[in-house]
Design a protein around this nucleic acid. Structure first.
Length: 720
DNA sequence: ACCGGCCTGTTTTTT
DNA sequence: ACAGGCCGGT
């Protein structure tokens, strides 16, 4: 392997001795390269066997990319035929890449947890075909629990979900719960948590947090199992270490018994505190592993000097930020362009116009102004008088245009994407949005998946409840209750024979004859799917199910929404095709696991020539030639919810830093003077982030009212 | 059991 | 602004 393409620091990290290693890698300093080289290096120097390496990344996509890079590094120097073969193997590999033997294990913490639980969960009283529930399912369960509770509470189900999640991240069972809450509330949370966990266990399902907590509980209770995994994962590498939480820290600490752990991260990019990540993990690495070697990667290969300087100034808004000197040999580049717009429509127009201009080389004329003295953006005037389509008729991306791949629009919240999306549609600019209304959370998708989950795990009450009357077949609340009672009574004795047994037992249930017939028909339906499943491919099974229950007819009500729903279901068939080669019953749980653990960024299609729109969180780890950073206003970034809490405000600053450092060549910063929030117009001020950017690196300015300030001058007080 | 209309909280970020 | 939950009428 040739290390000559690495700089001295990168090389030192790649060639570090075994034992704990912390690589503090600034934005764009090549940390993914270092990780890939490190893995290849360990394998090639025979320091660690490939199958004993575990690499944990933040997304499945990142894991897939690293896998590809390692394979390519290792196959260089081999004979042509051999390298061709391994590349081919690599192309076939699954996203949840925990199955191939020769390659290192790579994936997310959650997929690792799922993998361990598939093998070991029987010891915890679950069955290995457990299903993974998402947060809306969590919420449904908690709502039901609150409903059943003898006491009334005005507290929102979301609050309980958050407490339960925190408890799990801190590895507290319901019995061990200790969140420092006032006694009454603590008791209530404990009761809800207990019932919630019982429900999950009863219906053989786990939530995201369980995927981390349960393996740890298992390991702590059973040394033999732990030893097995310690032996298997002799060497562990972790990407984005700054965003790990307490449970993840403990899991690593348990597994890396020989302290062969190599973590890479940047404390300036820690942005997941809201979901329990603990920046202390990276800051205290040397305390946790006293013999740790630390390497710093400070040369940035991504951005121009102007962009880097701006990012540097912004991160200085954080007084407790560890100082770091990130430098680059890249050219100064064009100045960062600051643009004030009237409102979100003006913002969308500016972005669309600039993309058209940059990608086609055309000068874009301003629309004929209809603005009166009191109006907002020109476009706003247009939109009020005409349809959105005609509003942009003067702005169309010509057929002949350059690549759009290099453009990204980044924003703080999904809600901000709407105006942009409308502008892009009108201007005929191809785009993809990452996240937003998530594909796998759409109703029709969850319906189809629920049928499948029920097939995989007959105890999945949540899925049963979901599909029992979709499409409507005359089974209402009462009938469902009877069903549920039956399932509870039968589960301990004959789980496998649930469906036929049910038909026999049905005569003993007190229900009107009509309901009984409906329920019985439903179960015959499921039973039919059960016998069909082993005989056909997964995607064929799904098609057959959808056809049999006439889901398309149910959804296609003639509206546009109905049409979209049908299209979405067809899209889901395509996803399932990837699992068609697996034999029954393995294919189904693997498919369900992949769709449960898929992350938003995994859906990013980098083979398509489109502009990408996404949140700052989703943009972590990515880079683009040209970035439009929109909505830089107080209340948006930093977000209004974070203004009162210094820790959260710091996270907003780091979030801004992440956004700025995504840009390679050109960076546009936009703020609107007014914006429609929750339906009505709000006047806004430029973000404090903009105020610390030196004029020398900037084209455009903030104007008089809120002038430049040194980072130190801006306190944590909310700005007016 | 189903359907339509009204009310509410929801938007910060997510595996 | 809007989706999803709840209530009351069929």
């Amino acid at each position: 392997m040739n290390l000559s393409s690495l700089n001295e620091q990168q090389k030192a990290a790649v060639m570090a001795p075994l034992g704990p290693v912390l690589v503090l890698a600034g934005a764009g300093s090549g940390k993914t390269r270092v990780l890939s080289f490190r893995i290849a290096y360990l394998i090639e120097k025979a320091l660690v066997k490939s199958e004993n390496i575990l690499a944990l990344t933040f997304t499945n996509k990142a894991a897939a990319e690293m896998q590809k890079r390692v394979v390519s590094l290792l196959s260089r120097g081999k004979s042509n035929a051999e390298s061709k073969k391994s590349t081919q193997d690599n192309l076939n590999f699954q996203l949840s890449a925990f199955n191939s033997s020769a390659l290192p294990s790579m994936g997310t913490f959650h997929s690792l947890g799922a993998r361990i639980l598939r093998k070991e969960i029987a010891r915890l009283g679950y069955n290995s075909n457990f299903v993974i529930i998402d947060s809306s399912d969590q919420l449904k369960i908690i709502k039901d629990i609150l409903h059943d509770l003898p006491i009334e509470t005005r507290l929102s189900p979301n609050l309980f979900r958050a407490y339960i999640s925190t408890a799990k991240n801190n590895l507290q069972t319901p019995q061990e719960l200790s969140l420092g809450l006032e006694a009454d509330l603590a008791n209530l949370v404990q009761e809800v948590y207990l019932r919630y966990q019982n429900f999950l266990s009863r219906q053989n399902s786990v939530d995201f947090d369980d995927l981390l907590m349960l393996p740890i509980k298992l390991f702590q209770a059973n040394e033999t199992i732990l030893a097995k995994y310690q032996k298997q994962f002799r060497y562990i590498l972790v990407d984005e270490y700054q965003d790990t939480n307490h449970a993840q820290y403990v899991l690593l600490y348990l597994l890396a018994v020989e302290h062969n752990i190599f973590v890479v991260g940047d404390d300036a990019q820690s942005i997941y505190g809201f979901r329990g990540s603990n920046i202390g993990n990276i800051l205290n690495f040397e305390k946790h592993y006293p013999e740790a070697k630390v390497y710093k990667l400070e040369q940035n290969y991504r951005s121009t000097k102007n962009i880097l300087t701006v990012a540097q100034k912004v991160i200085e808004l954080n007084p407790e930020q560890k100082p770091k000197t990130l430098w680059t040999e890249n050219p100064a580049g064009s100045k960062v362009q600051l643009e004030a717009v009237e409102d979100e429509l003006g913002e969308a127009y500016f972005v669309a116009k600039t993309i058209v201009a940059l990608s086609s080389g055309l000068e874009i004329p301003e629309p004929a102004s209809t603005t009166g003295g009191s109006g907002f953006s020109i476009l706003d005037q247009f939109l009020r008088k005409q349809s959105p389509q005609s509003a942009y008729s003067f702005l169309q991306l010509p057929k002949q245009h350059g690549s759009l791949k290099g453009f990204a629009v980044l924003y703080r919240t999904h809600a901000q994407s709407r105006a942009l999306e409308e502008a892009f549609i009108s201007a005929a600019i191809p785009y993809q949005i990452i996240g937003g209304v998530k594909f796998y959370e759409r109703r029709e998708i969850k319906d189809v998946l629920a049928y499948l989950r029920l097939l995989s795990n007959p105890f999945d009450l949540l899925s049963l409840k979901r599909v029992v009357n979709v499409p409507a077949r005359g089974i209402g609340e009462k009938s469902f209750q009877a069903l549920q009672t039956f399932i509870d009574s039968v589960r301990s004795t004959i789980p496998e024979a649930l469906l036929p047994e049910f038909l026999k037992a049905l005569s003993g249930i007190s229900l009107p004859a009509k309901s009984k017939q409906a329920v019985s028909h439903f179960y015959e339906l499921l039973d039919g799917f059960n016998s069909l499943a082993p005989e056909i491919k997964l995607s064929e099974l799904m098609k057959a199910m959808v056809k049999k229950v006439q889901l398309f007819t149910w959804y296609n009500d003639g509206t546009e929404i109905g049409e979209v729903r049908v299209e979405n279901i067809k899209e889901l068939f395509n996803v399932a095709v990837k699992f068609d080669h697996l034999p029954w019953p393995e294919g189904l749980p693997q498919f369900l696991e992949e769709v449960a653990l898929i992350s938003e960024v995994d859906n990013l299609k980098d083979n398509q020539d489109t502009v990408t729109l996404m949140t700052l969180h989703a943009a972590k780890g990515l880079e683009f030639d040209t970035v439009f950073f929109v909505g830089l206003e107080e209340g948006i970034l930093p977000h209004a919810q974070s203004l009162l809490n210094p820790a959260e405000l710091s996270e907003e600053i780091r979030l801004a830093y992440v956004g700025l450092t995504r840009a390679k060549k050109q960076l546009f910063l936009l703020y609107a003077k007014a914006r429609r929030l929750y339906g009505n117009l709000t006047y806004t001020n430029p973000s404090r982030i903009l105020r610390v950017i030196p004029a020398a690196n900037l084209s455009g300015s903030l104007g008089q009212s809120l002038p430049y300030a040194e980072p130190g001058e801006l306190t944590y007080e909310p700005l007016e």
